[in-house]
Design a protein around this nucleic acid. Structure first.
Length: 261
DNA sequence: AATTTTTGCAACCGCCGTTGA
DNA sequence: TTCAACGGCGGTTGCAAAAAT
């Protein structure tokens, strides 16, 4: 199936059905939102919603801007490099779509998520219910390692453990305390003693000038390696704990994760 | 050609963290 | 310290287009 461009950019109303169930954005609404944000800037979406004259809520405005109207949005087919990166990142991170999208300039988390669920996930035969589209609560919850690092039930963060927090894996190694990935542990006293690696900085920093090898894997930093050792206990136990510096000079445009295999 | 099924994606939903009063 | 508003995220769904029958 080839679906190109903005096939449904305008509101679609079925014949004889006055109210579309899905409230698609109209070009006029896009124009209003775009003009307002370009004039006043991003942020404060509730205000944007009110003052722009949009009938949309703040969240809807933010989503529309972020996923569709924002400058430098790259649309169209994913390149092979982008596909490879998504696969590799998903293998490492699970359904951390925003984090994965952060490594793909011009791509949004929603686009990456959709692309995974429609194009890539079906090719991963090891995943439960791979290939099916609906009833997907477990489809994308598994990395290839069987590790779930999704956010909704296992929120990264602040040490507040929600009473509703559950894990979606039966892996006994994944517990309610270790499956949370800290966004900023420096402000979290409850987690300071855990020495949890900061995954956010790990995958957003581009300043590293060395590559780190562990087995045949390539890491950007010791802290990245630390992440795998911390969150994937089997990672350490399965290999000799030895890694070496990469003597090769750092290549700025080369994402080391592309080398991860 | 008509109908049914599948696919792809935009948008919504709800949860949770952060922030400020 | 509490609470409401807001923002961000991942999961889910509605529906048109494309493919299959």
């Amino acid at each position: 199936m080839v679906m190109t461009g903005n096939k449904r950019s305008s509101s679609v109303v079925k014949a004889g059905n006055a109210q579309p169930k899905k409230n698609l954005w109209k070009p006029e609404e896009d124009l209003i939102l775009r003009q307002y944000v370009e004039t006043h800037g991003e942020g404060n979406w509730a205000t944007v919603s009110k003052r722009s004259g949009s009938l949309r809520g703040g969240k809807s405005c933010r989503l529309r801007w972020k996923n569709y109207l924002r400058p430098n949005i790259k649309r169209g087919d994913m390149s092979q490099e982008e596909q490879d990166l998504i696969i590799r990142m998903h293998k490492l991170l699970g359904n951390r779509w925003s984090l994965i999208a952060g490594r793909l300039p011009g791509r949004t988390d929603n686009e990456v998520k959709n692309y995974w669920n429609t194009h890539l996930n079906k090719n991963i035969s090891c995943c439960p219910a791979a290939g099916s589209k609906r009833k997907s609560t477990t489809i994308a919850d598994y990395s290839n390692d069987g590790i779930n690092i999704t956010k909704k039930k296992n929120k990264i963060g602040t040490g507040k453990t929600s009473s509703t927090a559950t894990t979606t894996t039966d892996d006994p190694m994944i517990t309610s305390s270790t499956d949370r990935i800290p966004k900023d542990t420096s402000s979290d006293h409850q987690h300071q003693h855990h020495k949890e690696p900061n995954i956010e900085s790990m995958f957003t920093s581009t300043s590293t000038e060395e590559s780190w090898f562990y087995d045949d894997m390539d890491f950007e930093s010791p802290s990245e390696l630390q992440y795998y050792q911390y969150y994937l206990p089997s990672f350490s136990s399965n290999f000799n704990a030895a890694f070496a510096f990469d003597d090769e000079p750092f290549i700025g445009y080369m994402d080391s994760l592309l080398l991860f295999d």
